[in-house]
């Protein structure tokens, strides 16, 4: 499916205000800020298309880039997309993981498969491109679940929790956490603008890093 996102302005939804039906239906596709409010898509300004140089990041992959390149993870289910960004160097990193930790030892070269090891791997890749670790902040997207009451089958929650723990351990601030629900998501990271685009089948939102920070 070809995605042609439209540039949308941002609104911050005040959680004290009642949601209308449309918003309730769609809010799980939007970024949930740490204070409990949502960043939601507003009126399309129109005309914007993703730059031609878009690099896909597949499952169990991690990629760092600088400047005018867009990174994208399409089809995030229970997996988690980790978006890291250093605004000073305009270096961004994106990883898509579905496994929390390895069952045994981590084989060299497989660090990007696991939430427990991907943060350090992506940070190292970003530092190679000039990012400064202390300037890097994070947003995470994904962790949806198939309908179940059985905690053993909560695959998304497990990956999310391990990812949050790994970020904490690496001392990387987590700005937004757009996670849970039952919808497949896609994400585009624009390091040049410090922007994330999020899409579910019902919804499309844009998150600016400085707004989230």
């Amino acid at each position: 499916m070809q995605h042609v996102p439209t540039l949308l302005t941002l609104q911050v939804h005040d959680k004290s205000q009642p949601c209308n039906k449309h918003f309730q239906q769609n809010c799980e596709g939007n970024a949930r800020l740490q204070n409990g409010s949502f960043l939601i898509a507003g009126v399309p300004a129109g005309g914007y298309r993703v730059e031609p140089k878009t690099l896909p990041v597949g499952l169990s992959e991690a990629r760092a880039v600088k400047g005018k390149v867009v990174l994208t993870c399409e089809s995030i289910g229970s997996g988690v997309a980790l978006c890291l960004y250093d605004p000073d160097s305009q270096v961004g990193g994106l990883a898509h993981v579905l496994l929390d930790k390895p069952s045994g030892q981590v084989d060299p070269g497989t660090e990007s498969r696991y939430a427990a090891t991907v943060v350090e791997k992506l940070l190292a890749d970003m530092e190679n491109l000039g990012a400064q670790r202390e300037k890097v902040t994070a947003n995470i997207v994904g962790g949806a679940e198939v309908h179940t009451q059985d905690p053993d089958l909560f695959m998304g929650s497990r990956v999310l929790q391990t990812m949050r723990d790994s970020l904490k351990q690496a001392d990387i601030p987590l700005l937004t956490d757009t996670s849970g629900g039952h919808l497949t998501r896609s994400v585009w990271l624009h390091p040049e603008h410090g922007r994330i685009e999020l899409r579910t089948f019902v919804d499309h939102g844009v998150l600016d890093w400085e707004v989230a920070a």
Binding site: M1, S75, S78, L98, A144, H182, T184
Partner: peptide, 14 residues
């Protein structure tokens, strides 16, 4: 579905 192989309306809603 958990691995994101279902990108439609239905997503993980089973």
């Amino acid at each position: 579905m958990s691995a994101g192989y279902n990108r439609g309306w239905d997503g993980l809603r089973y």
